[in-house]
Design a protein around this nucleic acid. Structure first.
Lengths: 260, 260
DNA sequence: AGAATTGATTTCATATAATGAAACTTGTTA
DNA sequence: TAACAAGTTTCATTATATGAAATCAATTCT
């Protein structure tokens, strides 16, 4: 048995189990194409012997991971639907977000936070901290009211005018700094503005000297499941970061299944 | 090396490639559970040696088919999202529908059709025909106007009052039998009624003596991509079949990714 | 604190199970 | 009708996945 030239497939991920690698190559090849592919093409694309490709594809077919139409063209099978739906509720946003957050931290040099809404608060569930003397730092697990955080304001936009009004009534919109929005009307106006522009800023609304830019993360159902934000001392915050954040947020949303 | 007792795993699908089977068992085990599972549990559930399970899971992890949280608990990975989205546009409704249609034909003893909208017509794309002397039969590829078929009426409901009105204007609602709906207003009323009850009937509206019950098939995006229907001579059509059809339609929609 | 238990990982000799070549089928082209 | 092309099956060969056992890490118990 001759080993396939390794240099020819350096771009493909390799693990400890050959067949699995090869099976994945075939699956990836099918996913990359937007139409069913013949055995020949599939084998060539994956640098596999047709015989081998055939055996693997047949095995995958047994498990509905691939299906074949009458002309023996292969496509991804229904199992991907079935299992994919399971994943949805299971993906660990924190794990997926971590690398993206690290990049963002290195680009900005500031603290990056991942938050989730919990009742009338946002909870800090993950963070990436820069190596600097002065930095903004939140403890994982700590909370903050919705109306004084960038992500919180975007979350309020999600619950609509009615939800926002209800929140204002329940919480009483307590003042944290001179910049805190404390009127139901003013809050809703700001919240709508944030939602429209796709990101929110918190200008010393929670703590004097601390600013923040945040975006929402959406799951496959379009639901806002988390928020991603950069926090920095006022003088260091750059408006340009909004674009970086929006891009990062988009990527993260996609990775957890958001289509739009 | 001792082979695992075969009788103990007869319920699991087996193919020509052992590792692939085992990998799928592990994936299924993870999908079946609604929370991340430990290696031990996963190995036990799949009747695999922990060592083997570990190696396979590690390999799958390389390809993002599984991910592990910090406590070494395994869950399905982000690749399922990514590839699952690809599938969506690729599933071959005809192939998935065929077995369901066969069951339906056997339950009713009548012809079952799968149709798709194409412009202002429905096209017959697949069928299951009973073995009887007299039966309703459509040629695959043949067409019929929307307003004289059960599925067509449901499709019209999808395009809304405006779309329905536009269709009426374009087509002129030609009369096929004395039962054909030929007024824009009457059609829209019927169409709404059908949509509301979840299925439609065609009572000799296309051809005297021929009746039909139809439902819609939806894809992952909730879009109506096809119709499923039973056609029979008037005296043989049973109203109870509506429930059968609705159930079958639901199953088919789910299989091609519809969540609701 | 130290021992003992449990589970996750790594190592390694072994033989199973995946492999590629070649033969065989089937359907299409010249 | 023959030559061809693509898919499928067979089969001898050995590379490859395997399970036992050893190691490592983290808890729990005494």
């Amino acid at each position: 048995m001759k080993l396939v030239n390794v240099s020819a497939m350096t771009h493909k991920t390799r693990s400890a189990i050959q067949v699995l690698d090869r099976a994945v190559w075939l699956l990836e090849a099918m996913a990359a194409a937007d139409r069913p592919l013949s055995l020949k093409v599939l084998a060539a694309d994956s640098a596999l012997h047709p015989s081998t490709a055939y055996r693997i594809l047949s095995a995958l077919q047994c498990h509905d991971l691939v299906s074949r139409d009458e002309e023996a063209h292969y496509r991804l099978g229904p199992s991907w639907q079935r299992l994919g739906r399971q994943v949805h509720s299971q993906v660990d946003i924190r794990a997926v977000a971590k690398p993206i957050m690290n990049v963002l931290r290195d680009q900005t040099g500031e603290t990056v936070n991942l938050t989730a809404r919990e009742g009338d608060q946002v909870v800090y569930i993950e963070r990436a901290i820069p190596n600097r003397m002065m930095r903004v730092e939140q403890v994982i697990g700590s909370r903050a009211p919705l109306h004084v955080t960038a992500v919180g304001k975007l979350m309020l936009a999600e619950s609509g005018a009615e939800g926002c009004r209800a929140y204002a009534r329940r919480s009483g919109l307590p003042r944290y700094t001179s910049n805190t929005l404390t009127t139901q009307k003013g809050l809703w106006a700001e919240v709508q503005r944030c939602a429209a522009q796709g990101y929110a800023r918190d200008d010393e609304e929670a703590e004097l000297g601390v600013c923040c830019i945040g975006v929402l993360i959406r799951d496959a159902g379009g639901e806002a499941v988390a928020g991603l934000s950069v926090s920095a001392p006022r003088e260091r915050l750059r408006a340009e970061w909004a674009a970086l954040l929006q891009e990062a947020g988009r990527r993260l949303s996609q990775q957890i299944g958001y289509a739009g």
